[in-house]
Design a protein around this nucleic acid. Structure first.
Lengths: 151, 151
DNA sequence: GACATATAGTTAGTTATGCAACTAATATAA
DNA sequence: TTATATTAGTTGCATAACTAACTATATGTC
C-alpha cells in the first residue's frame, strides 16, 4: 500500500520536535522558574544516578541514549557545577564511576515534583490507556531500529 | 492519585530521546549512506518548502517548531549549501522569503523515499490504530503546553 | 612476556538549540 | 509628524549532539 507508506513517511516530519520538544522546553522553563540552574539533559543523567549511584559513563550513556562523547561533555559540565564527581574504578582504571555529590542529592525531590507537575500538564486529558500505548509504541520503535543495527 | 502522578513524571525520562532520537539517527544515517549531505534538521525545513515554497523565516520556524534564532542559522547553512535563497519581501522589507533552488528541488523525491523507508522500518509491527493514537496524543500534548503559555 | 585487539573515555570539528540583547523596518498614537 | 511600540531577523553566548581520530588500560594469543 503506497498510500499507507506515504502517510508513514509524513509522520516523521509531523511528530519530530513537536511533542517531545514541547515537553522538554516546558520542563526546562519550570526548572529555571524554580531557580534550578540545570539543563534537562543534565537532569536526565542525575535522574539515573538517583536511581543507582556510581554508574560508569558508558552505562549512563546507554541509559540516557547518548554516545560516549556526548556523555563525556555532559559529565564535564555536571562536574563543573559540582553536582557529580568522577572516580576511577579500582578494578579497571579505564572506567570512570560517576557519583552524586551532596549538592546534587537534595535536588532529587524538587526536580521530581517539577517533572511530575510538567507531565501532568502535558498529559491532562490523556488517558492511562493512551499513555500505555505511546510508551509501548516507543519501545517497539526503538527496538525496531536498534536490534538490526546497520552501520 | 499520587501513584499515577509518579508514573507520569517517570514517563518523560523514559521516553525522552528514546524513539524520536532513534528515528532521527536512522534517517540521518540513511541520508548519509545515500550520499546526501544534509542534516535531518535541514531536511525538515526543505520538507515544508517543498509543500509550499517562499515561506518567511518566521513561518518556517512555526511549522518546524523552532525559534527564530535557530531558524536563522539553519537557513544560513542551507544557503551556504545553495539549497535555498533568501529574498526580501517587496511588501515588507523586514521579511525574508525563503525559496528552494534548482539544486534542492530534485532532492525531494529521494529524501521522501528514504523517509518512507525509514519509517516503515521504525513502524514495522505497529498497527495503523496505534500510530493514529500516538499522533493524536502528540498533538494534544503539544496543545496542552502551548495554549496556555506561561512565560 | 610480547604483540595485536578490544574497550572506556577524551578531544577536535561541525551543526544545532535556546535565551537575551541587538538592528532595521513597520505600525500605532499623540 | 514625531515619538513609541511592535515585528522580523541577526548576533553573542552557552550547552548539547554526532562522527572520527586519538590515548590509555585490559585482554587474548602465540
Amino acid at each position: 500500500m503506497s498510500n499507507n507508506q506515504f502517510k508513514r513517511g509524513e509522520l516523521y516530519s509531523v511528530i519530530n520536535g513537536m511533542a517531545t520538544t514541547a515537553v522538554a522546553r516546558r520542563l526546562q522553563k519550570n526548572f529555571r522558574n524554580a531557580g534550578l540552574d540545570i539543563t534537562i539533559e543534565q537532569w536526565s543523567v542525575l535522574y539515573h544516578l538517583w536511581k543507582e549511584d556510581g554508574l560508569s559513563q558508558l552505562e549512563l550513556g546507554n541509559r540516557t541514549f547518548r554516545d560516549k562523547a556526548s556523555t563525556t561533555r555532559l559529565i564535564d559540565n555536571l562536574e563543573k557545577q559540582e553536582l557529580v564527581v568522577r572516580v576511577a574504578s579500582k578494578d579497571d582504571r579505564r572506567i570512570n564511576l560517576v557519583y552524586l555529590t551532596d549538592i546534587a542529592k537534595p535536588l532529587q525531590q524538587i526536580t521530581y515534583e517539577l517533572a511530575n507537575q510538567t507531565m501532568n500538564e502535558a498529559l491532562s486529558n490523556i488517558s492511562k490507556e493512551e499513555i500505555e500505548i505511546v510508551k509501548n509504541v516507543f519501545q517497539r520503535v526503538y527496538d525496531n531500529l536498534t536490534s538490526k543495527d546497520l552501520s
